[in-house]
Write a protein that binds this DNA or RNA. Structure first.
Lengths: 183, 183
DNA sequence: TTGCGTGTCAAGTGTTATTTCACAACATTA
DNA sequence: TAATGTTGTGAAATAACACTTGACACGCAA
């Protein structure tokens, strides 16, 4: 049962969030959060949900249910799943269920015309692989511009500042695989 | 929040189980179970787990986190690059330059009609993510078969024995991301 | 009718989720 | 060096609510 705590702690530390900081978001005390992480207390379902929310994962994952082992590994029709609108004209959908044991996180980016990311808003220090499925994407790494057409791909360290922009006259789709999953 | 109750009730009635009968299994009172189902009470995480267990589902599913069915993908993704012919009718191309410091290795698999892989010839113990770009792929993990249409994806541990086969009447393309790189 | 099954409600009882406050360990700054 | 601010953790108190008890009303069969 204290798998919950382990997972929470892992995700929290990976995200470099302090106990008090996270506690504040959830409207619980830092002490209680600590007790949860160390298995000395069990949160209510609603706070567990809030927890999963803040850590950008699911309750199931926190409970160890979406283990790479047990879970149904298939994600049907990911291409037209809901996804979250993260910025103007940009939609991101997870291509697999969030799970702290996973080493990669595949995402589908959908950019409307002229949509662009802010400056390196995705800061985690893993690596990224991007494959353009549709349209055209301009990625700027460290002031250097790269033009990616459909079928092109790129691989870089997440730590290098990066911006990207849809330069296609229509929607651009790109598969984005990130490691480690600290999104 | 009362989505829990709705789901529980649905599964219970579908299984033709009475309130008292299910309550007995869980060691809770029938009355309490009723309150849960009607959203008037919230169970603890441990009883929710027991509940999911008895109903042969997962906590995530009870919370409405599970992936629902979806429609057909819209992707036209097609790419044409040169790669190595690794087996009969199978071509693999690296989508990035080989590099020991890289944490992921993206590959493009192209399978001619009826092409298939041998039995778990790709054994390393990282994880794999596969996205079908074109055609249809049948992947067998541990004797369990999964059918992937274009746009579907799958995530699994490399250690689980896996075979795959092109079951499309034509060429099948799939993006394969592996971790760690064993090339 | 009687009896047994169903699900639900109100008002309790206990458990425990959560808080408060304090402490020790490690940094940072003066 | 001490002071001040972090960090995570622990014990004890309290407030919340998970859960029980014991009803009730309904439907169905003998």
């Amino acid at each position: 049962m204290e798998i919950i705590g382990v997972n929470i702690k892992k995700l929290r530390t990976e995200g470099k969030i302090s106990l008090r900081e996270l506690a504040k978001k959830l409207n619980v005390s830092a002490s209680f959060l600590s007790q949860v992480e160390t298995g000395k207390a069990t949160p209510s379902i609603s706070t567990l949900k809030a927890l999963a929310d803040s850590l950008q994962t699911s309750v199931g994952a926190l409970l160890g249910e979406s283990d790479v082992e047990n879970n149904n590994p298939v994600l049907k029709g990911a291409m037209n799943k809901a996804g979250k609108r993260t910025a103007e004209g940009m939609t991101v959908s997870l291509l697999t269920s969030p799970d702290p044991t996973k080493q990669m996180e595949p995402l589908l980016f959908e950019l409307e015309k002229n949509a662009t990311s802010g400056r390196s808003q995705y800061k985690h220090f893993g690596q990224e692989f991007v494959l353009v499925l549709k349209g055209a994407l301009e990625i700027t790494l460290n002031e250097t511009r790269y033009m990616l057409q459909r079928g092109d791909s790129i691989y870089f360290n997440s730590s290098t500042p990066h911006i990207f922009k849809n330069v296609f006259n229509g929607e651009t789709q790109a598969l984005w695989v990130v490691t480690p999953p600290t999104f």
